[in-house]
Design a protein around this nucleic acid. Structure first.
Lengths: 135, 135
DNA sequence: ATAATTGCAAACACTTTGCACCTGT
DNA sequence: ACAGGTGCAAAGTGTTTGCAATTAT
């Protein structure tokens, strides 16, 4: 494992894409495609590796679609304290909602006390459809 | 799409394995391996196809591990009305808990009313660790 | 200088498909 | 008889790895 990290233009490019599209998660392929069409291509290996690193450091959240099996990544907004609440994700548009409200914070407690489970907020994603995508 | 379905010994073998192991989901590979070691091998294509059919008919629930990306399948107990509640899954042992209690049924309502999302119970799996697997 | 990073091509793991043969009804 | 099912081998998909060249410090 590397002990230092260098700043490279590839990392900067990927990062700024993630920042620009922070509403919904991006797949590695779409990042590669976007960078190509911006005239600043980055090798797909680099994209996979960098996103996996960010996910390991908790700077990015990784989702896996159960049908396509494609991984998608979204920047974690540190000011939101995402480790403390669950998330909702629209199966159609990918939009994420942070469930930081009072009521939802009781859910973890309830599950622990009544069902003997310790919920892992970083892995749990409640799936459904948002208002816009409801048919 | 087929209009009729035949009963075959392969389907029967896979079904009885699912019934025997209904506590935790099984991967296609493990089903293939188990059937081989029981002296009644079934082609892996058949296993994949049959499980996918069962999942489409809602007789089996499909999970996708976000790390290994392996799909696992578990028989749905129809008497439990799984469409009406969320599920909890232990990330270590795979055990499933049905959240059919009063409190949890309010969660869907809360999310709809306060966050504008319609939760899809068939797709949602809350992840965490069960009592046994807690370190 | 030298450790980290890049990116190609090749390897991988899981799953799906084409197709000729087999089986249940 | 014939629609449905099986299973091999081959193709597909998304991701990871080996490695030689490149770049940041």
């Amino acid at each position: 494992m590397s002990r230092y990290t260098y700043n490279t233009k590839q990392k900067t490019l990927i990062m700024s894409l993630l920042e620009k599209e922070k509403e919904a998660p991006l797949s590695c392929d779409s990042i590669v495609a976007m960078l190509v069409s911006e005239g600043t291509p980055v090798g797909k290996t680099t994209v996979y590796r960098f996103l996996e690193n960010l996910a390991a450091k908790g700077e990015v959240r990784k989702f896996v679609d159960s049908h396509s099996k494609t991984a998608t990544f979204q920047l974690v907004d540190k000011s939101l304290n995402c480790a403390e609440h669950m998330h909702l994700r629209c199966v159609d548009c990918g939009r994420i909602v942070h469930l930081g409200c009072e009521f939802m914070s009781e859910v973890g407690t309830h599950i622990f006390e009544h069902h003997g489970f310790t919920v892992d907020n970083s892995k749990t994603v409640i799936l459904g459809k948002c208002e816009n995508c409801k048919e």
